[in-house]
Design a protein around this nucleic acid. Structure first.
Lengths: 155, 155
DNA sequence: TATTGTTATACTCTATAACTATA
DNA sequence: TATAGTTATAGAGTATAACAATA
């Protein structure tokens, strides 16, 4: 870690929150839910699953900080809609993993497209500025990944 | 509006989402709720109220895109905790407005401090970079405010 | 007649507790 | 004995419908 967070850094973060909670980003999640016809919890779960990387149900519960029984209900719902499947773990028969079906992967594709489309206001920046913004944010996010992993390991 | 959203702009937005939902920002709201002892819905409402600018309940419902009856329940809860008060509207007696009490303002102060503190990863940027990031984000957020207002007016 | 807010009610989301199977 | 997941149940959170008061 090279320095400290300045007042400008605080304002930058606050502006991100403003974009997410007051601005156009605010209605994004409900809008996506209505378009796809699934609850927000399912959207978040779909975004963390993939067709070829099985995720243990326990890991999902840990990631969302919720009870395991809720993951059971969520995955039941995903299975009923044909978006995901439970698979046995190759070596530990207590563990059940979850993967997306082709239909689930397809709906995740649509979700991703909608969520990752920036608010129109991004076009107020020139192409150069958009690159600068990307680079600065990347630097923060990469540091965040390191710090989060370190915190998780030290726990 | 001066231009279009580039691929870099898309990546910038995606990185913001990553910070908010995968990174340190992810656990922020639950953490704040536990610290203050109030549900997330109340945190959001407190952040939109003030001691001296009365807000009509109808406006709260519109802002959150929820039913008016839910605002009634929320404000009931805020009043029972001594954080807010209903006040009559000066000219329209159908309308009830809401203001924060001193206790509510104090808890909002604590909430704000916690929410507006950036993730530690911001310190990976130099002071100059933090200023650059702030300026770029401001530009986006200001454009967003204009566009959101325009969209609301055109409705 | 249309709008603001409340009440009563029902539905959805999420957690707790008790249980089964495997390690 | 400890861990992964399920079931049954209870508690928040949020919406719908019917209603009272005011415009």
């Amino acid at each position: 870690m090279v320095g400290v967070t300045t007042q400008a850094g605080r304002e930058a973060w606050r502006t991100i929150l403003r974009l997410m909670f007051d601005g156009e980003g605010h209605g994004r999640m409900p809008e996506v839910c209505r378009a796809i016809g699934v609850p927000a919890s399912m959207v978040k779960t779909l975004m963390h699953l993939s067709p070829d990387e099985p995720k243990a149900m326990r890991d999902l519960a840990e990631h969302y900080g919720c009870d395991a029984s809720y993951i059971t209900a969520l995955v039941d719902d995903l299975e009923q809609r044909g978006f995901a499947e439970r698979r046995p773990h190759p070596s530990d028969r207590r563990i059940r993993t979850v993967v997306l079906t082709p239909a689930g992967a397809e709906v995740k594709e649509r979700l991703t497209e909608m969520l990752w489309t920036p608010p129109p206001a991004f076009s107020a920046l020139s192409a150069t500025e958009q690159r600068e913004l990307r680079d600065l944010l990347r630097k923060v996010a990469n540091a965040d990944t390191v710090l989060t992993a370190r915190a998780a390991a030290g726990r």
